[in-house]
């Protein structure tokens, strides 16, 4: 019961934010991550941003996966 999706914060109005994923926008509560900024990525679960996504860490993991993919030669 733990689906959560990374979404980007477009607008912030007090503890409500407009968030976007895949060109799709909806409202989310940022009560649990009140210090997020516009442009940040957060994990959306059941209408709430539950944690900020660390883009630097994400990029590092992606880079590692890209290296592995290149090793496969395609």
């Amino acid at each position: 019961m733990c689906l959560a999706v990374p979404v980007r914060v477009l607008q912030i109005d007090s503890l409500e934010a407009l968030v976007e994923v895949g060109g799709l926008a909806r409202q989310a509560s940022i009560m649990l991550v009140p210090d997020v900024q516009v442009g940040d990525y957060v994990l959306l679960h059941a209408g709430f941003a539950i944690q900020k996504l660390d883009e630097k860490e994400a990029e590092e993991t992606i880079r590692l996966f890209e290296e592995i993919a290149e090793g496969m030669g395609d």
Partner: peptide, 12 residues
Amino acid sequence: REEVAAACEILG
């Protein structure tokens, strides 16, 4: 479509 895929991700 990407937005349909996104809605599916969000709604499970």
